[in-house]
Simulated scan of single mutants.
Amino acid sequence: MNRKIRRILFISIGFNLLFIIVTGFTFVKLDKVDAGVKKTNAVNRAGFHYYERTSLFDELSIPPNFIVFLGDSLTFRTEWAELFPGKNVINRGIGGDTTEGVLDRLDSVIAAQPKQIFLLIGVNDLRSHSVSATLENYSLIIDRIQSGAPKTEIFIQSLLPVNNKKYGKILTNYKIKKMNEGLRYLAENTGVHYIDLYSIFAENDQLPEEYTIDGIHLTGKGYILWRETIKKYVD
């Protein structure tokens, strides 16, 4: 092999090696960018709390046939395992979460094929979105659960009232009741259960002060009332 051919061969090999190195670096960088985008989107939607909780859920798989409580801060802020001792219950609530957030993290719940799902979500949506837009996302949640986990028993829990004296006028109970009407209709048309928490909690269309400090989140008495309302369904 003469020098000219060897020189061409070495140059060709060098370019190929360079291409492989650059391509590999690019893929690694893109993976990091994609992960960063997912993290940024999660943080932008509901703050670092959402990302912290979902990253924890990624590490802690749900055992099969467990009962999942899925929702926002109302679900997150209590100890379901202590409220229902002897039951295989697990908390998948995230403070500040929305229907969009639940849709984004629903795959891990469906993968577990839970025995039951108790869903309470939507109040955070209503502060900035319409009832119809929120119900559209809610419908997608139900459809995905029924398609991916057909044996899972689904319970739609109505939104609770707020106390406008404490919480302000950012959200009215009129809008919450319209949402609940839509949830009841959705439950009837998809064959899932509907639990009317609103009527249990409301006094004069307000969340009583004995059940809340800030007008939207519950005190211990509020969670006991919630438990007593749904305990006949938790199996």
Rank of each mutant, 00 (worst) to 15 (best):
A46N: 07
T78R: 06
I67Y: 02
L30V: 00
K38N: 06
V37D: 00
F69V: 03
Y51N: 12
A35Q: 03
R53K: 15
L83T: 06
Y51R: 12
E52H: 10
N41H: 09
T54F: 01
K32Q: 04
D31E: 12
D31C: 02
F66Y: 15
N44E: 13
K39Q: 08
P63F: 06
A46S: 08
R53H: 02
L56A: 12
L83Y: 07
V43M: 06
V43A: 05
A81P: 13
F57G: 05
A81I: 15
R77S: 15
A35L: 08
W80T: 09
I67N: 02
G71A: 01
W80R: 05
V68G: 01
Y51E: 14
E52K: 06
K29H: 10
T75L: 06
A81G: 14
Y51S: 12
K38R: 05
S61M: 11
F76P: 08
R45D: 04
R77L: 15
E59Y: 10
L56I: 11
F76Y: 13
F66N: 14
T40H: 12
R77F: 15
R53Q: 06
N65V: 11
L70D: 04
G36T: 00
D31P: 02
E52M: 11
V68C: 03
L74I: 15
L70Y: 01
S61R: 10
T40I: 10
H49W: 10
I67V: 14
F57Y: 09
L56V: 13
L83F: 08
T40G: 08
G71F: 02
S55L: 11
H49N: 13
L56Y: 14
S61A: 12
W80M: 07
K32S: 09
F48V: 14
D34C: 10
T75G: 08
Y50M: 15
S61L: 12
V28H: 02
D34S: 14
K39G: 04
K38S: 03
V28M: 03
V68N: 01
L56E: 14
E82H: 13
L83W: 10
F57D: 03
P63T: 05
L70Q: 05
D31Q: 11
F66G: 08
S55M: 11
Y50D: 10
T54I: 08
D58Q: 11
T54S: 04
S73H: 06
T40Y: 11
E82P: 10
K29A: 12
A46H: 05
L70K: 03
T75K: 03
S55N: 11
F57A: 00
L74F: 05
F66S: 15
I62P: 04
I62F: 01
D72F: 01
F84N: 09
V37Q: 05
L30M: 05
T54M: 08
K29V: 03
T40D: 13
R53I: 07
A81E: 15
V33L: 03
N41C: 13
V37M: 04
L60M: 11
E52W: 07
V68Y: 00
V33Q: 01
S61C: 08
R45G: 07
A46W: 02
F57K: 03
V33K: 02
V68H: 01
H49F: 15
L30A: 00
